[in-house]
Nucleic acid binder design. Structure first.
Length: 303
DNA sequence: GCGACAG
DNA sequence: ATCTTGTCGC
């Protein structure tokens, strides 16, 4: 199963280049041009790692409430560049915000298209048991800017083994779109390793029923279980289940161990498996995978 | 004004 | 996730 490989960084920086001379826009407006207001923080993040502030004019992006916002080259520099464009600033507030506000981006709202794709992928997930659960692997990824460090720790046929990889990412973290960021790691790490994949994320417990565990599970036609450390959405009922729109989508083993099925496994089996593995706590194998990715990243940091 | 917001 | 340029809703 294939899916859209979109370089959201490139797409985004091209949107920023569209802001006309003498105009400003907001983080939120750029997020809407991407297709989802929930990308607003990712907009700030992508601007913060902008490698070319002269060609990609991120100084033109300000807060919705007219505050100037931050700038990697310093607030004074942002104010200076804005003033040069005729933007009036007083006490860090944009005075002529209204007449200089630009929102007419030429865009095809890529995140909306990805949402449609997620719904389609979700419709292909199945939650029937049948896969051998005795062999399993845990996957996690750490980041340093656009560089990602992924690790897989597997317990197969009584033996532990570890695989790690390093790749550049072309998609930032945006709540609801983790599949597009991390599926490439899952595919590469789990290729040739059999058994159930435990993924540090949600599966069914997702606004479009397509968290990373489901997304990657369907793409790879593999059994996956999502084990998140915090609640993305929904409410806990009296029995520990997580309910969203009157549907049971997940289960909280504890406050920091949120289980939802990804693909080719039921919610009940997912709960049983993770409860057993972690003895009611966050499974150690997932913690190990996380520790490994952090170690990889620190090893690579400039010495 | 404070929390939500997978990683 | 890292230590970092947000927004909305209660």
């Amino acid at each position: 199963m294939n899916y859209t490989h979109l370089n959201l960084y490139d797409y985004f920086y091209n949107l920023v280049k569209q802001i006309p001379e003498g105009c400003i826009t907001t983080y939120g407006e750029l997020a809407r041009a991407l297709g989802d207001i929930r990308a607003a923080r990712a907009v700030g993040y992508m601007l913060s790692i902008n490698q070319d502030p002269d060609k990609i004019p991120c100084y033109k992006v300000v807060h919705t409430d007219r505050r100037m916002g931050k700038y990697a080259l310093g607030m004074d520099e942002k104010e200076k560049r804005l003033r040069k464009d005729g933007i009036r600033i007083s006490n860090g507030i944009v005075e002529n915000f209204r007449e200089r506000f630009f929102s007419d981006f030429k865009t095809d709202y890529p995140l909306k298209k990805l949402q449609d794709e997620q719904e389609n992928i979700a419709s292909m997930a199945n939650f029937r048991d049948g896969i051998d659960e005795d062999n399993f692997s845990a996957i996690d990824v750490s980041y340093d800017g656009r560089r990602g460090y992924g690790a897989l720790i597997s317990y197969n046929r009584g033996e532990y083994s570890i695989i790690n990889i390093e790749m550049e990412v072309d998609f930032p973290y945006i709540p609801g779109y983790l599949g597009y960021r991390e599926t490439p790691f899952v595919e590469k790490l789990a290729d040739g390793v059999d058994g159930v994949l435990l993924i540090d994320a949600n599966g069914l417990l997702h606004p479009r029923k397509c968290g990373l565990a489901t997304f990657a599970g369907v793409v790879m036609d593999r059994a996956t279980i999502g084990v998140a450390k915090s609640l993305l959405m929904g409410k806990l009922d009296d029995n520990g289940y997580i309910i969203y729109n009157n549907e049971k989508l997940g289960y909280a083993i504890n406050r920091h161990t949120i289980v939802s099925p990804g693909n080719k496994i039921s919610l009940e089996s997912s709960i049983r498996k993770i409860k057993l593995l972690g003895k009611g706590k966050y499974p150690y194998i997932l913690k190990q995978a996380h520790n490994e990715t952090v170690a990889m990243r620190k090893r690579r940091l400039p010495s």
